[in-house]
């Protein structure tokens, strides 16, 4: 009974990350020093946040390819706002970035919900549109660190209890999502919609509406990450986080979230992101060219999806066995 309560996938993935850390430590012990691990976590924080948003979307049988473009657009908008009005309080900037991101997510969600356009088409389209809009509003120019206010760039780097705010934001969102997914009606209905949309209707759950909110959530997190990203790297330009949407999807897939919907967990998404983060940070340490990173994450996706498909394979009807039970 107890073995059923321990999530298998997360345990194996967690073990894989620990093994990876141990391997790296044999070559360079400093890698697993707390300060460096905190650094890895901070580096992975944007990926963790976006992977959580993407997880919700994938759980409802959709996909959001526009997250990186959303991030870049919100980030650029916030940077330009900061240049225009340097005195705006950071709390307002954060609220605005969440709002703008959520609005873009709502566009995706509405197209999926009301017009029933396949999510991959919708977000493929909005991805290119959002990128284009960045160019329109910035006229292709960069916003550099000297143009931004100290408070603007300072927030994600402010250290509290030994960790930068960026990490704290990721931790806070992870906790919130943990509660939301396991203890709120919305969280459970997300699993229901993805697991069996037909049955969800029978329990009074509106499938399209749930998908809409999933996109809004994913968009809001992308917007928030947009500000954090631009402030942390203290630069904004059209191409920031280019192709990052695929890394986000990769984190989810590695974390065991089924692309067919309904199966996945907050822990899985976070571990999937951390796995990619550890690989990325470990490569230079063990003297492997960073150019290996792409191939490694590609292989990790293929291995993860093959592994998850094997473990999650639906059991066929066991007609013969029931005959033994019955008699």
């Amino acid at each position: 009974m107890l073995s059923k309560l321990i999530p298998m996938r997360e345990t194996i993935l967690g073990a894989a990350i620990l093994l990876l850390l141990a391997l790296v430590a044999t070559r360079f012990a400093g890698f697993i020093a707390p300060a460096n691990l905190a650094n890895v976590l901070n580096d992975t924080a944007p990926l963790i946040i976006l992977a959580l948003g993407q997880m919700v979307v994938i759980l409802t049988r959709c996909i959001d390819l526009s997250v990186a473009a959303n991030l870049a657009l919100t980030g650029m908008a916030m940077a330009m706002l900061n240049v225009a009005m340097p005195d705006l309080p950071i709390a307002l900037i954060i609220a605005l970035s969440i709002l703008i991101g959520a609005a873009m997510g709502a566009i995706n969600g509405l197209l999926v919900w009301k017009l029933e356009i396949p999510p991959i088409v919708v977000t493929l389209g909005t991805m290119t549109i959002f990128r284009g809009i960045i160019f329109l509003i910035s006229e292709g120019k960069w916003v550099n660190s000297h143009e931004m206010s100290a408070a603007f760039t300072g927030f994600p780097r402010d250290v509290m209890l030994g960790l930068p705010m960026l990490s704290w934001v990721a931790i806070l969102i992870t906790i919130l999502f943990g509660i939301m997914m396991s203890r709120s009606s919305f969280g459970r209905s997300i699993f229901a919609v993805g697991g069996n949309p037909h049955a969800a209707v029978y329990t009074g759950i509106n499938v399209g509406k749930t998908q809409f909110f999933a996109f809004v959530l994913s968009g809001a997190l992308a917007g928030l990450t947009g500000y954090l990203w631009v402030a942390r790297y203290a630069v904004a330009y059209v191409d920031i986080a280019g192709g990052f949407e695929l890394e986000v999807v990769a984190a989810c897939v590695i974390g065991g979230i089924s692309i067919a919907g309904g199966i996945g967990s907050v822990g899985g998404a976070v571990l999937g992101a951390l796995f990619l983060g550890v690989v990325k940070n470990a490569l230079p340490v063990v003297n492997i060219s960073p150019f290996w990173q792409l191939a490694i994450s590609g292989s990790a996706i293929l291995i993860a999806v093959a592994f998850n498909a094997q473990s999650g394979k639906a059991k066929g009807r066991i007609i013969l066995k029931t005959s033994k039970d019955a008699t």
Binding site: R188, S189, F191, A192, G195, N196, H198, A199, A200, Y202, T203, I205, G262, I263
Partner: peptide
């Protein structure tokens, strides 16, 4: 009209 990935209790009370 049930959900494989949810627990029995959740299926009853969703």
């Amino acid at each position: 009209v049930l959900f494989d990935e949810l627990s029995v209790a959740e299926n009853i009370y969703i």
